[in-house]
């Protein structure tokens, strides 16, 4: 068994809005093992980013962790004081975003920003900081790093900016990198470059990555472990084999059926019926029940329990309980 780095337990993150309390994350649990890439996938609004921001403690003003724990080395990150947080962010855990300009300041040069981050987090002097900045830009595949130090973010291409943001996140060699849709705004050939870079860095530096994306293709390419989210809850978790070839939640199955692939071009796509979820008007039972073709009575009224299907694979769908009972019955 490998080492568990981070453990999220029954995390609930709510937002206060005029229309009511938005339960964006509603009982999410998972563990992140050292050196692994964990994928969080789900459609927009499913709570992926809020889960990530909860870990980093960078929620919007109107948001709060209502309950649950985020355990790092046995301590709850949510209960950290300012000083502890300073030691956590950047040094233990860093985050990168879809839009690099959320992390980069347009009025400072790349060099300014990188060196400042290095000076802030390490005891290097100015000269050493510059050397380190060049080293880290080289690490993330930025060509002509010395020239880049003098440039402003807008002078770089989208892919290059993304690399600089990754460099920024890696300054202190964190154990955990959270990447929130890091390639969603990029074209596929640039996306391929960045994904390859992340894989390389992961191997080289041995860090763990939480990769948040709505793109099942990116997940298939990159992830060891996968969590599928819907309506603020985890509906299924497992390794790539489990999720892609033996999905056990109706939402995961629907998602896989609905994407165009090289082989299904001649067939009609099978969409998931209905409209996206409204967090202010959640069903009492399974979050997916109003869109699920296979929904049973119990699905409407009771939140499905998570059932273990194998060593690696868990799903929260009442159908699995039904199947188990029928199997049990047939076995007699």
């Amino acid at each position: 068994m490998s080492e568990c780095l981070l453990e999220v337990k029954e995390l609930c993150t709510y937002f206060h809005t005029d229309a009511g309390e938005v339960k964006a994350v509603n009982g999410v649990s998972f563990t992140l093992e050292a050196g692994k890439i964990l994928g969080i996938v789900g459609e927009s609004g499913s709570g992926k980013s809020v889960t990530a921001y909860s870990i980093m403690q960078i929620l919007a003003e109107n948001g709060r962790i209502a309950s649950g724990e985020i355990l790092y080395k046995g301590q709850d990150v949510a209960k950290y004081n300012k000083n502890q947080l300073k030691g956590f962010r950047g040094k233990v855990c860093s985050i990168i975003f879809q839009d690099p300009m959320t992390s980069l300041n347009p009025v400072f040069t790349i060099g300014n920003q990188l060196e400042e981050a290095i000076l802030l987090h390490t005891d290097k002097n100015k000269e050493q900081a510059k050397a380190r900045a060049i080293e880290i830009l080289t690490l993330v595949g930025v060509n002509e790093p010395e020239k880049r130090l003098k440039q402003y973010p807008h002078e770089l291409s989208g892919g290059m900016r993304q690399r600089v943001m990754i460099a920024m996140a890696l300054v202190c060699e964190p154990d955990i990198l959270i990447a929130d849709e890091p390639t969603t705004a990029l074209d596929v050939t640039i996306q391929a470059q960045i994904l390859e870079l992340m894989q390389e860095l992961q191997k080289k530096l041995g860090m763990a990555i939480i990769l948040v994306t709505h793109d099942l293709g990116v997940i298939a390419d990159m992830c060891d472990e996968i969590i599928v989210m819907y309506g603020g809850r985890v509906c299924e978790r497992g390794n790539a084999e489990d999720i892609f070839y033996h999905p056990k939640h109706e939402y995961t199955k629907g998602l896989l059926r609905s994407i165009p692939s090289i082989t299904n071009a001649k067939q009609k796509l099978i969409p998931i019926a209905g409209t996206p979820i409204n967090l202010l008007n959640m069903p009492k039972g399974c979050a997916f029940c109003s869109r699920c073709d296979a929904a049973m009575k119990i699905c409407l009224t009771e939140i499905p329990e998570e059932m273990r299907l194998s060593e690696t694979h868990l799903a929260s769908c009442w159908l699995n309980f039904k199947a188990q009972m029928e199997e049990g019955g047939a076995g007699k």
Binding site: S157, G159, M160, V188, T189, I190, Q191, A192, Q193, L195, E196, D215, L216, G217, V218, I219, A220, D221, A240, E241, F244, L256, I259, S261, I262
Partner: peptide, 26 residues
């Protein structure tokens, strides 16, 4: 060729077995 090889394919077996042609630069 490179565009096709860069598309993320939601099928881990294919994703891991195919040859990616990563384009250099922008």
């Amino acid at each position: 060729l490179s565009l096709l090889s860069a598309i993320p394919i939601p099928d881990p077996h294919i994703a891991h077995s195919r040859q990616r042609i990563i384009l250099e630069g922008d």
